[in-house]
Design a binder for these strands. Structure first.
Lengths: 239, 239
DNA sequence: CTTTGTGAACAGTTTCACAGCC
DNA sequence: GGCTGTGAAACTGTTCACAAAG
């Protein structure tokens, strides 16, 4: 807070400082912990130690404890964490106790997969609009909703107070649709199109890039190959 | 290299040290640079300055230059980078100059979207098998290939020397299919199922979690709301 | 004069290890 | 005894600023 002393009260950085801030890396893991907690709750587990929860989430116990300490002290020393309480606290921090109306722009195979994805509905994300520019897709029923023409984007956003948009269009139309979402009032975008979107300040974009992930794997795979070859050469040299 | 002095030559960590290592964060950005370079090449741009390429890739020029310096000195001071040369070097580092046979396990909407995704074929990823446990899907044609029964997993992996597997199954069967992929010799897995996979050492897993990304956006969106409310309160107090 | 390549400062994240509480 | 919460240390990644090169 000290570094904000000379800012005005209207300064967004100052105002953000009022809310306790949580490191990016921690925020990205909270949903993982939440899922693990839901699984434990289903198995009627009442209390869990950091060791066990960490294993279920695929992180180290120390990291888990540090992450959870950002939310407050919800554990009991010598015992562990109450599964239900902790799940509730994480959900609250993530803003999942409220309902988030979402539009999906682009209803190809990927858009359809997203519309059908149970993980969305489970977490308070309600798909209130499926939009597509292709007249052949308009009118189809996907995941129980009718696909509407892209021209209705502004209407759907305004009608449901949509803040979060999912872009699953081809690369060519992603920026144009993004601009329209932002103009209509959407301030968070999940982008599946393989392009770098440009958006004004205050709009968050997260990108999921399918081919990027494979390329990273290819890098490591090639690296393993190189190591295997090097081992072979060194082995041969010794012989 | 100094810390490896007392390791044996068979130690994988030592052998990995022989290959020049590139920071994780840099590896994750190389595919983005590569895409930007391909776009520039299509527009017949021959040379590009870090400033311009950085903008196209959505990073800062300093970060771009530091990243590229890991690959060697392929720029010319006062001029910039040769688009074709740089693209080639990045592709080589990522291992995209070779062809990677890939299997997709689980051919629901998401699996179909992945099978049809042009970005894979473009980068040397060749889908050599579509597998599904559901008899209703077996035999269907998806992206020009026939869907085969999951029982053929081991045969397909062996036949094509598959190193990379893509998991797009429901959560319930992901770990089982993962175990079979690993047992068959796959050592890199791209996981779309919402579970934490456990794999032996030496196997790389990357996870793409659709609902996780939305939850992170919800967090930031809620945070913005809180800031807006705080601004409102402070504004009212002044009035 | 322009633009790269890079050491050095800085910022963010993870790990360690242990005090404090049950 | 067991387990959490947390400073301090170690590590990783980013930004700065400028010397070196064309």
């Amino acid at each position: 807070m000290t570094q904000d002393r000379n800012r005005g009260v209207d300064d967004p950085a100052r105002l953000r400082g009022i809310v306790r801030d949580i490191p990016q890396a921690t925020v990205a893991r909270l949903p993982v912990y939440l899922r693990a907690l839901h699984e434990l709750a289903e198995r009627r587990v009442g209390t869990v130690a950091s060791q066990v929860l960490a294993r279920a989430a695929g992180v180290s116990p120390a990291k888990l404890r540090k992450d959870l300490s950002c939310l407050g002290s919800y554990g009991t020393r010598g015992v562990g964490y109450d599964v239900a309480t902790l799940a509730e606290q994480i959900a609250r921090q993530l803003g999942l106790t409220q309902d988030w109306p979402v539009v999906i722009v682009g209803v190809g195979k990927l858009g359809q997969a997203l519309a059908n994805y149970a993980g969305f509905a489970d977490r308070g994300f309600r798909v209130v609009g499926l939009l597509d520019a292709d007249p052949a897709r308009v009118g189809q029923i996907v995941a129980g909703s009718v696909v509407r023409p892209a021209t209705e984007l502004e209407r759907v956003v305004a009608e449901h107070g949509v803040c979060i948009g999912v872009l699953a269009t081809p690369a060519g139309s992603a920026q144009r649709m993004c601009d329209r979402l932002v103009a209509a009032g959407v301030s968070s975008i999940l982008n599946f199109a393989p392009v770098v979107l440009s958006v004004p300040d205050g709009v968050d974009v997260r990108k999921v890039d399918l081919s990027l992930e494979l390329q990273i794997l290819a890098f490591h795979e090639q690296r393993k190959d190189a190591v295997r070859r090097a081992a072979g050469v060194l082995g041969a040299m010794r012989a």
